[in-house]
């Protein structure tokens, strides 16, 4: 397998009141062709910024984004614009990501117009095809406006728009967080089905580990702009190496009253990203933190086959 997307030391800085905020700090990872990489973390950890930096919607301030051998970070505006049809994005808020004044048929056909499909009949055929694929009835839906649809249906429309150009990589930024439980499962299943049908590679960003587990081959965990751990899904859940991953796993409420909820989880909340702790950023909440954690930034190291963690005292050692 070859990497379709690779990030090398990616850094994204914002200027906030004269200070710089490292939303993404020195992150390196890769996504193989045909793979789904889950990216989890709490709000403010930089996972959404990372997604947008891959698409160059937010220009990185350092590092490289390489897509299928082309370095996107160095690409001029026009070349990047042409590259965009191969990379797509699905947002958290499906209703906000549809123009309220345009009809569904036009919204889904828009990408075709942008890439220059001038034949109206051809556009119509492809719109109908992709709408049927995502479970929408073209005859009913094409002429309507977004507000006539529920959140789940709007997300189907967004998925149709993202897929109509048959992209290679789709970045899903919290695609089901705004949806109800019963609708969430429909959309997750749909994404899995679309991935098979269109041979997609997915970068699936979410805060909910259970949701990420349902769709991912590998999972990367971020905390305050840094990558903590990256591992195959089963391995990450069975034997997390980073204490933060373990905390996330313990915090998930389990729908089973015989499982007592874990109490006295690591105290405190994520510190302000404007003023991150020295050394390991998780040390202020970590039960295993010591002096070394305050002094040195832990590098990402392989702790088991395919499992990498940025921790001085990982929970699992090399096998």
């Amino acid at each position: 397998m070859s990497a379709l997307l690779s990030l090398e030391n990616l850094t994204v800085e914002y200027a906030v009141g004269g200070r710089s905020l490292f939303a993404v700090s020195d992150v390196s990872l890769h996504v193989d062709r045909g793979e789904t990489l889950g990216l989890v973390g709490e709000s403010g950890c930089g996972k959404s910024t990372l997604g947008r930096a891959v698409l160059q919607l937010r220009r990185p301030t350092g590092g490289k984004v390489v897509f299928d051998g082309t370095e996107l970070t160095g690409l001029g505006a026009e070349k990047m614009r042409l590259m965009r049809r191969r990379l797509q994005l699905i947002f958290q808020d499906p209703i906000a990501s549809l123009n309220p004044r345009r009809r569904i048929g036009d919204i889904i056909a828009e990408p075709l117009i942008i890439v220059g499909v001038t034949d109206k009949a051809e556009r119509d055929r492809r719109v109908r095809e992709v709408m049927t694929a995502v479970g929408l009835d073209p005859d009913v839906a094409m002429g309507r406006l977004p507000h006539e649809f529920s959140g789940g249906q709007c997300q189907r429309i967004c998925i149709a728009r993202a897929l109509i150009l048959e992209p290679e990589l789709v970045i899903c930024d919290e695609p089901v967080s705004a949806l109800d439980v019963s609708i969430r499962a429909q959309i997750l299943n749909l994404l899995e089905e679309m991935k098979r049908r269109y041979g997609l590679t997915l970068l699936f960003i979410a805060h909910d580990l259970a949701v990420v587990k349902a769709v991912s081959d590998r999972i990367a965990v971020m905390y305050l702009g840094k990558l903590c751990e990256i591992a195959p899904t089963e391995r990450l859940f069975a034997q997390p190496a980073h204490p933060y991953t373990a905390l996330l796993l313990d915090a998930i409420p389990v729908p089973d009253p015989t499982v007592r909820p874990a109490t006295n989880l690591a105290v405190g909340e994520p510190p302000s990203p404007l003023d991150p702790p020295s050394g390991c950023r998780f040390r202020t909440r970590c039960p295993r933190a010591d002096r070394q954690c305050a002094a040195e930034v832990p590098p990402l190291r392989e702790v088991a086959a395919g499992q990498f963690a940025a921790c001085h005292h990982p929970l699992t050692g090399p096998a």
Binding site: V181, A185, Q186, L188, N189, E192, A210, V215, D217
Partner: peptide, 22 residues
């Protein structure tokens, strides 16, 4: 509703028993 929640103990890529419609 319970079945539609992704479970931590199921394998990745297990299809979820979704509730159809709305």
């Amino acid at each position: 509703l319970l079945a539609a929640i992704p479970r931590l103990d199921s394998a990745p890529h297990t299809p979820l028993p979704a509730i159809g419609g709305r």
